[in-house]
Nucleic acid binder design. Structure first.
Length: 854
RNA sequence: GCGGGUGUGGCGGAAUUGGUAGACGCGCUGGUUUUAGGUACCAGUUUCUUAUGAAGUGGGGGUUCGAUUCCCUCCACCCGCACCA
């Protein structure tokens, strides 16, 4: 018997799909649309197993929805700008563009070998001027609407590499490459006004019911809405006042100090004449900009010597500190400290010997709830003049009213979300299309000059931004006055590229960013699939961009992604040699006695934990090698079969082998039984033998279950149901040659091929053809379950006595309850369990269970 | 610290959402075929047990005729956020 040759068959069908343009789509008002999108990959050069899992899931959804009659858009592109290309340029002397396009070519081949139902005619790469030029147009439109603006903000500056560093590039306060101590510097940065949309971004989360709760919650926390108050404190002997933000205005009477940020104007003014303050500010600036860095630092402050007047307590003076834990970016960059009811204030007060006065009492009577920690729970206000006796919430309202009357404060809603800084001092990104003119200031590039294309002749041998030291690129006449001016040499954050690519896919070759009729038809994305690591930034930025594109008239939708699914990671065991070196899975094997050893040398291998695949621990498998060995279908089948898609899955060779075996078994079964089955399009005969009818019922039940599982993305369960059906087919006696049996067998064989189709598309096409079809399975409709066939005439019901299982009974479907009781009680095992006891009641759940209560 | 999640055989996991716990796959144990194999097929595989049952879904408690599922509490692990005023 000829064995199924995955390599040949898969290549064959991939070619046929491509020739027939099976997956190339255009808007079609006669059919419902469905837009399936997986997060587009960064072209690192090779796909990894995580990609295989991600794209397989998306492909199953796309193929399934297509079979269901939807007009399915399923595109692919490349998130192609980014630092790795510049690193490659530096380290290997290859131009970023060359490196990137070579990687794209390699990865495209690998993806194609997976047999994905992608519309390759819509492929885009974000590093192509045909993409980023339109991004520049969007930028200019946003600029007109003031959705983007320029502002000075702090960055991590590497003084040797002369470059801005991302937080993760700062290691122990030093640049990752140069090792130089990182400085905080203020630079002019372009910012998207995302924080203006905080409330809207937050509100809409409630409506996004096809997003995981987890992700919605993460975004909610990130946006971080809080309600509180602004309070103004007069600084003694100064004309200034300090405006602070607090969420606990009710604890105002417990205030014992003020704290301001090192970057606060008050501090900066002071630093000019106060060496202690200046030194402290400098110290704060060495911490780096990440919140993590600030967290790890000790809580520290320096007394400015100034005091502020308490707005309600006559004569009370609060010392003003500069403190390293106060962030200029949040609230007003200043706060009052109430140590009795806030952990951070408590720690600070303990360190600097400040007063701790309780003003909230848990039951209203206790003098203090303080032990060795502040009290942050609910209760009644004490020690607070006119607030005494009020509950915390009532006290907040009351004191805000009083503050307003005094003109010393007001209610204020605050958000943690900050504006999105998009400037990057790098070469390999989308140039920001503005020009700096001495006379006219910052001037947008003329639209007819778009795209502003990156120069090709750049060098990476000098520190700093290659665009900046390019001899001619940045010199250009001012679009406004025509005098000599200088181009912006910053490029855009790559998150900008990924914030609208889903819209560009709708009209990828248009000479404007997007065509309205196309985006109106395709958007929003119906099912978006990707990793949880993008739960916050990418998904929030894309949501902001969608709003901005609506404001500038480019699209109609409020939200880009109607459905979101976050898949789990792929993990693998780790292996180490006796010398402690990590080993690749292909470097180890079982020896004759069943021990894991190194293939080279035969040394013993220590098996480590099951961890996320990473290059450093070498616990990676190469999808190319897997596909070569097992075939794309088996690889696809396996990544779907074992674990629920949102959970991490462990890659094991044994699991992949299992998938491969199923593929062989199904192939063999169809070949062996095609002759026995009826011909395609055979008329349904009047009579169907009993055994065939049973098989038919199983087939239709399987269709129903698999359909439901695919709708809910429960791929692992869908596969389990297909295995069960395969088993039923194996057990079925094919010897009866009556028309009825042959017809049922044909239906069953076609059913299993149909159901397997989205998961193992090449095998399914091959089998579809073997079954005598001239059509392409990818163009064929999804099978419909006949409901009557999914309902059994009889059901097995469990019989319990006092909640313990004592037997099962076979009764007609929907049998009368009293009849069920009768049958149940007639069981010997049931009678034995009841014994001498009297029956108190009998609970019958139709078609499920009988419980005799004694 | 706050928020969220997870915990079921040797392993991945299933359980119609309160109704026969362990589907399906992997592994393992027997057996049968086979010219070899990462072959195929059949049977078995939660634990204990006097073979009659008993226990059992991280531990303890509760609600219920009935709990993997709901509630309380504790434990372990994972993820997110975090000097957020």
């Amino acid at each position: 018997m000829s064995r199924y040759n995955a390599k040949e068959v898969e290549a064959k069908w991939q070619a046929i799909w491509a020739d027939r343009k099976c997956f190339e789509v255009e808007p079609d008002s006669s059919r419902p649309k469905y837009y399936v999108l997986e997060m587009f990959p960064y072209p690192s050069g090779r796909i990894h197993i995580g990609h295989v899992r991600n794209y397989t899931m998306g492909d199953v959804v796309a193929r399934y929805k297509k079979a269901q009659g939807f007009n399915v858009l399923h595109p692919m592109g490349w998130d192609a700008f980014g630092l790795p290309a510049e690193n490659a340029a530096r380290d290997k002397g290859v131009h970023p563009a060359e490196w990137t396009y070579a990687n794209i070519a390699a990865m495209r081949d690998e993806l194609k070998s997976m047999g994905l139902s992608l519309d390759w005619s819509k492929e885009i790469a974000s590093c192509h001027p045909g993409y980023y030029g339109h991004q520049q147009k969007l930028f200019l439109d946003f600029l007109k609407e003031e959705l983007v603006y320029r502002k000075e903000s702090w960055v991590n500056w590497d003084p040797i590499d002369m470059t801005v560093l991302a937080n993760e590039q700062v290691i122990d306060g030093k640049g990752w490459r140069s090792g130089a101590t990182v400085e905080k510097r203020k630079l002019n940065q372009w910012m998207f006004r995302i924080s203006d949309y905080s409330e809207d971004l937050l509100d809409n989360l409630d409506k996004m019911d096809r997003w995981p709760d987890r992700v919605r919650l993460m975004q909610q926390n990130w946006i971080g809405k809080s309600t509180g108050a602004h309070v103004s404190f007069d600084v003694i002997d100064e004309a200034d006042s300090l405006e602070i933000y607090t969420t606990r205005p009710d604890t105002l009477f417990g205030a014992s100090f003020m704290a301001v940020s090192a970057d606060h104007p008050f501090t900066q003014k002071l630093a000019k004449n106060n060496a202690d303050v200046a030194a402290f500010v400098a110290e704060c600036h060495q911490m780096g900009t990440s919140e993590e860095a600030i967290e790890k630092a000790d809580k520290k402050g320096v007394d400015t010597g100034f005091t502020a007047a308490h707005p309600f307590i006559e004569g009370k003076r609060l010392p003003i500190y500069v403190a390293n834990f106060v962030l200029m970016d949040y609230g007003t960059g200043a706060l009052f400290g109430c140590p009795a009811h806030d952990q951070r204030d408590w720690d600070f007060a303990k360190k600097y010997g400040l007063d701790i006065l309780p003003v909230v009492s848990s039951d209203g009577n206790k003098v203090s709830d303080l032990g060795d920690a502040p009290y942050t729970g609910p209760g009644k206000i004490i020690n607070s003049d006119f607030l005494n006796g009020l509950e915390v919430e009532a006290a907040k309202t009351e004191i805000i009213e009083r503050l307003e009357k005094l003109g010393k404060g007001s209610a204020k809603v605050n958000y943690r979300l900050r504006d999105w800084g998009l400037s990057r001092q790098r070469y390999w990104g989308c140039p920001i299309p503005v020009i700096h003119c001495d006379a006219c200031g910052t001037v947008p590039e003329k639209e007819e000059n778009l795209p502003v294309v990156l120069p090709n002749d750049v060098t990476f041998d000098k520190p700093g931004n290659p665009l900046d030291h390019h001899p001619s690129w940045k010199h250009t006449p001012c679009p406004s006055c025509g005098k000599d001016a200088v181009r912006e040499t910053d490029t855009m954050d790559t998150f900008v590229d990924s914030s609208w690519y889903f819209a560009r896919f709708c009209s990828p070759r248009a000479d404007i960013p997007v065509e309205r009729d196309k985006v109106d038809y395709w958007l929003p994305v119906d099912q978006y699939i990707g990793g949880i690591e993008h739960a916050i930034l990418h998904l929030l930025y894309a949501r902001f961009f969608t709003r901005a594109m609506k404001i500038t008239g480019w699209s109609h939708v409020e939200e880009p992604f109607a459905g979101l699914f976050t898949q789990g990671m792929v993990t693998h065991e780790t292996y180490r040699s006796t010398s402690g070196e990590w080993l690749l899975p292909e470097e180890v094997a079982l020896n004759d006695s069943g021990d894991l050893v190194e293939i080279e040398g035969g040394g013993p291998v220590t098996i480590g934990g099951i961890e996320k695949m990473s290059k450093s621990k070498k616990n990676v498998v190469d999808p190319g090698a897997i596909i070569d060995k097992f075939g794309a279908d088996a690889a696809r089948w396996y990544v779907l079969s074992d674990s629920p898609p949102d959970r991490d899955m462990e890659w094991t060779d044994a699991g992949a082998t299992g998938a491969w075996r199923f593929k062989q078994r199904l192939h063999r079964y169809i070949i062996e039984n095609t002759e026995t089955a009826g011909v395609p399009g055979m008329q349904e005969p009047g009579e169907i033998p009993e055994a065939a009818l049973t098989l038919r019922k199983t087939a239709h039940k399987t269709i129903m279950q698999v359909t439901e599982n695919l709708e809910n993305l429960h791929f692992n369960n869908a596969i389990a149901r297909i295995y069960e059906f395969m088993k039923a087919l194996n057990d079925y006696d094919v010897s009866d040659q009556s028309d009825g049996s042959r017809w049922v067998l044909r239906e069953a064989l076609e059913t299993i091929v149909n159901l397997v189709g989205p998961m193992m598309p090449h095998l399914a096409e091959e089998l579809w053809q073997l079954l005598g079809h001239q059509t392409i399975l990818a163009d064929s409709p999804w099978p419909q379950a006949i409901k009557a066939l999914t309902i059994e005439d009889t059901v097995t019901m469990a019989v319990q006595v006092k909640g313990k299982l004592r037997g099962t009974i076979e009764v007609a479907f929907n049998e009368q309850s009293d009849r069920v009781e009768e049958i149940a009680l007639a069981q010997k095992s049931v009678q034995n369990a009841i014994g001498e006891n009297t029956i108190r009641k009998i609970i019958v759940v139709p078609n499920r269970i009988v419980n005799v209560v004694i």
